[in-house]
Structure formats: C-alpha cells, structure tokens
Amino acid sequence: MTRTDNDTWDLASSVGATATLVAAARAAASREADPLIDDPFAEPLVRAVGVEFFTRLASGALPTPDDQAAMGVSRMIDSMAVRTKFFDEFFLAGAAGPATSGAGAAGPATSGAGAAGPGVRQAVILASGLDARAYRLDWPDGMVVFEIDQPEVIAFKTETLAGYGAAPGCERRAVAVDLRDDWAGALRAAGFDPQAPTAWSAEGLLGYLPPEAQDRLLDAITELSAPGSRVAIDCVPRSSQEKQDESRKRMEATAEHWRDQGLDLNFGDLVYLGDRNEPGAYLSSHGWQVGSASINELLSAGGRATFDEDEPMNQLYYISASYGGAR
C-alpha cells in the first residue's frame, strides 16, 4: 500500500513489517558459523510477531538456494549484519570516549568524526523498532538509552522481552511517540538532557521519510545536541529519475518472489525516492564534522562479498558525525 501522510501500521504490515524483516535478518546473521553480530533477542521477537515468512527467515528455514538468490536473502543478511555491527560499534565507541574515537566499524574512512570529550552517557535510538541494543550491548555504568517509536511497537517489544525474562543493560527509557508528532517534546518529558552529549542513531529510517521530514529530523537532532554529541545514519545517495525508476522496478521484481513465499511487502510502495538533501552535507552545514564509509567497505571489512557496481545496494553508505556546537 502506498504511503500517506497519516498512515498507520503494526509490526506485520507496511513500514512496521520492515522492522520485523530487519530483526529476522539479524537473527539469521547471528546463526552463522562465523557471525559478525550476536543478537539473541531477534528471533524471539520475530516469532512473537507471528508472520510465517519472517519466522522462517529468522530460524534458518530459508527457501531453496535458487529462491534465496532471486529474493536477495543472503545479500540482505550480510547487509544487515554489517549495518548492525556499524551501529553497535558506534554506540560503544561513543560511550567509551576519546580512547576509541573514530566511527567504529567504518574504520579509517571516518577519521575526524569520533567522540569529543568524555564518553557519552545518553543515547537516543530513533524509530527503534525491534532493535534490542538496550538489552544486548555491554553498556557502561550510568548509561541512559532512550528508544523512540510508535506506542504499539514500544509496548510490544517491552512486553515480549519481559516475558522472556530479559532486562536492559542500561537505564532504558521508552518514548512512545510517532516521529511525525512532537517527539522532541516527548523525549524531553522522558528526562532527556539537551545539555549533555548524546549519541543518536537513525538506522534504516531516512528512506521512509519525505525529503522535508528528513530535514526537520536532522534539524531537531542538531537543536537537541550539546557539544560532543555524535550521530550515525545509513544513507542512500541522490539519484536521477531514471535511477529511481530502475530501483522501483527492482523492488517490484523482488516483491514478486517474496509473494511466492507468502509475504506481500513491496519496498517500492514504502520508501520516498524523491530528490532530497544529502544528509552528510546537510549536517556539515549545521556544525557537524562528518565521516563516511560505503556499504562495500563495511562488507569487505567483515569478510563478506561486496556488491557489484550495477547493484542498487552498492550505493548505500554510512555516516558518523560529531557535533562541535556551532549553530
């Protein structure tokens, strides 16, 4: 279903289903013989959502190799593994402080974008979905992690993990609000301190926002960030209308293969591919020092096969930035 300004969803439909898909890919990546990540909560959360396709993906009961290739399953799992590793290391590096400055998984490509000052003790995960970093990362004492997502998503994850006896490894503060509403006000009301350095993540988010909403989000992050704050984002570069049309056709072809396996989800209907500001350049113009790494750099560093030049996923890149306080 094509997006509208006030559309709604749950974890089994529309944009919400993409959060479950990502969790299923994290679960599959965690099951590998030589895993890049370890997310023991991903599979239980996916099973609780109850969509058969996602459960099969999470548990390793994948389709035949030919079907996997047509659906891009193995490449998606690799991509989610290195993406998860990138954001995991971003948060842990920020919490550790300048001794581990840099952008973690991004490596040398992000030099100059590391932590400034002492380690941060406040993190904000935007559109947290089924992300379980508050539970599974080795956070330092005094760490406060804010998770922002729709009320139904927050409630589902909180209740499901509690039912498994899981407890956060930090002070987790759930902020149940849609990012289209006054999330900044809700974040403040939950005890967020705009005078303290913050580590922010916008993972798998920008493509689901219209261009103007992306700018508003980055503006709000800047407004709420004290000097020494950090932000990590995964990005897709600007492209011509021809490239956008090609991307939609590829998404539709992949969706057809997914339907054969029982999942009716077309990314082409969910994302906004129109012209927008490049996030790194936008942040640079607002006082941030930005570094970046391509998806292929992350895949290569993780010992995974890289994308060919003609594959759309080849264009993905990751930025990590630190804020100096200039307005």
Rank of each mutant, 00 (worst) to 15 (best):
S14E: 14
G16W: 05
L21G: 13
A27H: 11
A29P: 03
R31H: 14
A33S: 14
D39P: 08
V49E: 02
V51I: 13
V51K: 05
P65S: 11
G72N: 09
E89K: 00
F91K: 06
A93L: 01
G94R: 08
S101A: 15
S101K: 12
S101I: 03
A103V: 07
G107W: 07
R121D: 07
A123G: 04
V124A: 12
A127Y: 11
A127K: 14
R136G: 01
W139Q: 01
D141S: 13
D141C: 01
M143N: 07
V153S: 12
F156G: 02
F156I: 03
E159A: 15
G163L: 08
Y164P: 00
G165K: 03
G165A: 10
A167N: 07
G169T: 14
D181Y: 01
W183E: 08
A189I: 03
A196K: 11
A202K: 05
L206I: 07
Q214T: 06
R216C: 04
S240L: 02
K243L: 04
Q244T: 10
E246V: 00
K249Y: 02
A255Y: 07
L265K: 06
Y272A: 02
R276I: 00
R276T: 10
H286D: 09
S294L: 07
I295R: 12
L298F: 10
L298A: 11
L298R: 04
L298P: 07
S300G: 00
G303A: 11
T306W: 06
N314M: 00
I319P: 03
A321I: 06
R327S: 13
